[in-house]
Write a protein that binds this DNA or RNA. Structure first.
Length: 270
DNA sequence: CTCCTATCCTGCGAGC
DNA sequence: TGCTCGCAGGATAGGA
């Protein structure tokens, strides 16, 4: 489910629903491990923490509190939801009780996600090596070419490498490359600066459009209130193997790159 | 360094 | 209908 647009929508949902004066009265953890999960002791110590704000960094959700920062990653199947009462569902792993009686609940069937707390001044190790956010003015064709232009790896893999630039996942990588007419398997070193310029623009455009449409809900709902995104209805190539290209009518093809399914139009993309 | 593979885990759809 | 198989939006360790 979650790439950058989906995580951004979740962050906005959390902000909207938590408001300004949310206070944590309890954090209950399931017995099942996530990729990383806060210790029980830390959960206990969060009692009384005021929630000060919600930020996104790459695909991580950062919840600032008066007792440190809560870091959440949704992995493949994670979701946060707000409940007026503690309605438990299968695969609920974190249940945060709020002082107004509501519950903020993290659910994650595959448990690839993470949830931990970091004291002020501490940082989650996974955040340290991350490249810049994609929307900044410094992300230009020249910037991309400087980092990808000598690499032999497929451009799609490079776009998805969070050490270079964050936020582009498997769905949007295919969509971005369709938009600029470049085959996903093309090595970074064989792409011109002009093409990198178009890629830089397409990254921003596609992610922005996806955010504006509430993200892509492929399987699970993503929004905090249970609502679904709409961008899945605007995907041009992802999961459309065998279907006609919406631009030229040729059959969309699929292949595997970096172990991930990849989609492209053999006529529109060179 | 760079590139690629396997792995964590459950659920679901395709195919028989 | 019920079974098995393969695959799924991410991140990371480890090998070549």
């Amino acid at each position: 489910m979650p790439e950058l647009p989906e995580v951004e929508i979740v962050c906005r949902g959390l902000r909207d629903h938590l408001g300004d004066n949310a206070t944590i009265v309890s954090i209950e953890l399931s017995v099942h491990p996530l990729r990383q999960k806060m210790p029980k002791k830390a959960a206990k110590s969060m009692r009384g923490a005021r929630i000060l704000g919600v930020q996104r960094r790459a695909k991580y959700i950062l919840i600032q509190t008066s007792k440190g920062t809560l870091v959440s990653h949704l992995g493949m199947t994670g979701s946060w939801r707000i409940e007026a009462s503690p309605v438990a569902k299968n695969h609920d792993h974190v249940i945060i009780g709020l002082s107004d009686g509501r519950f903020l609940i993290y659910n994650d069937p595959r448990r690839f996600g993470m949830f931990d707390r970091f004291a002020d001044g501490m940082i989650y190790r996974g955040l340290e090596h991350l490249g810049p956010e994609p929307f900044g003015d410094e992300i230009t064709g020249v910037w991309l070419r400087d980092r990808m232009g000598r690499r032999q790896a497929p451009i799609k893999n490079l776009l998805m490498d969070a050490r270079l630039i964050v936020g582009v996942g498997n769905i949007y990588a295919s969509e971005i490359l369709f938009r600029v007419g470049i085959r996903p398997q093309k090595p970074g070193a064989r792409i011109s600066e002009a093409s990198y310029e178009r890629i830089a623009s397409a990254i921003k455009e596609v992610l922005r459009e996806a955010i504006d449409r509430g993200g892509s809900s492929i399987d699970d709902y993503i929004q905090v209130d249970g609502g679904r995104g709409e961008f899945q209805n605007f995907l041009q190539v992802y999961d459309r193997a065998g279907d006609p290209c919406l631009k030229c009518g040729a059959k969309i093809k699929s292949l595997t790159l970096g172990g991930r399914s990849t989609y492209f139009c053999p006529r529109c993309q060179k």
